[in-house]
Write a protein that binds this DNA or RNA. Structure first.
Lengths: 213, 213
DNA sequence: GTCCGCCTATGACAACCGTCATAATAGCCC
DNA sequence: GGGCTATTATGACGGTTGTCATAGGCGGAC
């Protein structure tokens, strides 16, 4: 999980995202990024003349694009897509990581939002753009599943909100409980919106959507 | 909003929580805390021999107790309590702050979770305890509103997850949209659980729960 | 008075941070 | 080879961090 990207520049952006999501923005030093990326230190001021700000902003943007691509892949891999199934897949990505790799890291976009120095408006805007970039394919997928136009964006926001919050709680508790809980509780609501009809009590108590671990 | 608590010690804990939720843990310096609390610098090593760790941990614990007390106050102020009403009140607290004070600050517990150095297990445990302390009165309130025992804790986790995530997104976007959205979308689900019956489509499209701004 | 705790004041420490100045190297075109 | 650009190497700078050592003041106990 170390050097993957081709050029040193890509490697540094990737490493920055990984370190930020583990330690936060302020606690991540440029020398740490260089070491983690196994990149030459002199390349820093060459590729990122904007300094740490630029590196952080690009890392956040990269994370947003990565999240969007993940959503697309989840949809491709689903034989018969459903809102609860998509959400379960998004959640499962995190439960899998936490159960295999440990609870060391969270979401880089969340870290950047919480930890950006007051005055770093560019970083905050990058985080907002990342959320939008992530939310867009989710909302589009919901629409294609039959969710009315107005609801799709709202439900996408709800899904990402619940996921981000559950990641926080899971990390604090060192337990995936919060993640599996939100997937379970939100599934029926999401599926009901895609069918344009209300819950049945049976659905509410035994929700659909991918298996929980 | 500066010096409120009585002793210098309480003031420093309070100021630490305020600065942490604005700048993050690492970016908050002890000298900043002292200045913000208008406390004598020499008192730091006297009241907090455990150093920054101890101060941060106490600030997080304080935030957890504060959140729990807020929930209790919301319930007291509600003439006829409902799950969606409680959630709307919790959300409204944030929309109000963001619309009047600006989007400078987030949740201190979230900041501590994201930004705690790897090795500061005590801080992470403090964050987990804060989440538990906050979630407990919410779950109890849900139970008293008729939510089945098993569901109450799950829904409390869902509420806090969605709220925390929406706070993140709202801060990044500098817009309360995410907050009002989760309140709107989650309200009917919560109320349905308290009545033990499914949605009606009318509820789903025109959800109950406090007015949105 | 003297003593003894609590609290505060102050200055310094080593370590680290992001940034920069400067120079050396590598590769390619002509 | 000469020249040019892209990339890397290296060392230093000023600033800030958390922490500590040391000493001063202060209020009661006796």
């Amino acid at each position: 999980m170390a050097v993957s990207g081709r050029g040193p520049r890509e490697r540094m952006v990737f490493s920055a995202a990984q370190l930020i999501r583990r330690d936060g923005v302020t606690a991540t030093g440029m020398r740490d990024v260089v070491a983690h990326a196994q990149a030459p230190r002199g390349s820093l001021q060459h590729y990122f003349p904007g300094g740490k700000r630029q590196l952080v902003d690009e890392a956040v943007a990269w994370a947003g694009r990565y999240a969007a691509k993940r959503v697309a892949r989840f949809l491709d891999e689903m034989p018969e897509p459903s809102p609860s199934g998509l959400f379960a897949a998004m959640v499962r990505q995190w439960t899998d990581e936490y159960q295999t790799t440990g609870f060391a890291a969270g979401c880089p976009v969340a870290a950047a939002t919480v930890d950006c120095a007051h005055g770093a408006d560019a970083t905050r805007e990058a985080a907002a753009a990342a959320f939008a970039c992530w939310s867009q394919p989710v909302a589009q997928a919901l629409t294609e599943m039959g969710v009315p136009a107005g609801r799709a964006e709202s439900l996408a926001t709800l899904m990402i909100s619940a996921l981000e919050g559950a990641i926080l709680i899971a990390r604090a508790e060192q337990d995936v409980r919060a993640l599996t809980t939100v997937a379970q509780e939100l599934g029926p609501l999401l599926d009901a919106a895609s069918r344009g009809r209300p819950f049945t009590p049976a659905e509410a108590s035994a929700p659909a959507g991918g298996r929980e671990t």
